[in-house]
């Protein structure tokens, strides 16, 4: 599979979940492992550009596919606009849900660069944040929509 643009080849047990493959085999610990029951969404990564819960995908199923994790957002020292938005608008407190939120926000903006508040709320509705009450996450994603090239951070 391709992970963050790099081809990786490993022999793994069929029962290895994608989230553990990313964290334990590749050391990409930005993807968090949360509820483990496909509910909380902290483990969201992009799979062929669409968000998936990596605790509910077998690593072997990702063979031949393109996976992107939160580590791919920053590019040559430049944060992705969604990362900047979360900083500008206090989109996180404890940070546990953040990597999943960032990835679904990125997928949303790639498809719909100017989403309404309702659209943003819908896009993150499969993910749980226990700190922010979501309002600042929604604002953060809007910030990113309004600053597609990023901005002074």
């Amino acid at each position: 599979m391709t992970v963050n643009g790099e081809v990786v080849t490993r022999d793994v047990e069929a029962r290895l979940l994608l989230v553990h493959f990313l964290r334990d085999e590749l050391g990409l610990t930005g993807t968090h492992w949360g509820c483990d029951t496909s509910n909380c969404g902290t483990c969201v990564v992009l799979y062929d550009d669409e968000p998936v819960k990596s605790c509910t995908v077998l690593a072997v199923m990702a063979g031949g596919h393109d996976v992107r994790t939160v580590e791919s957002l920053e590019w040559e020292g430049q944060l992705d606009p969604v990362q900047q938005g979360f900083m500008e608008c206090h989109g996180l407190q404890c940070g546990f849900c953040t990597s999943g939120m960032l990835m679904s926000a990125r997928a949303l903006l790639d498809r719909d660069p100017d989403p309404s508040e309702a659209t943003i709320r819908e896009a993150i509705s499969g993910q749980i944040c226990r700190c922010t009450g979501y309002a600042s996450i929604v604002r953060s994603v809007r910030w990113a929509a309004e600053h597609p090239a990023g901005g002074v951070g």
């Binding site: 969404g41 969201v44 968000p51 995908v57 679904s104 896009a123 499969g126 993910q127």
Partner: peptide, 12 residues
């Protein structure tokens, strides 16, 4: 369709 599960489960 939009009421099945959540948007991320719907991807798969």
């Amino acid at each position: 369709a939009p009421l099945i599960a959540d948007p991320i489960v719907r991807t798969r």
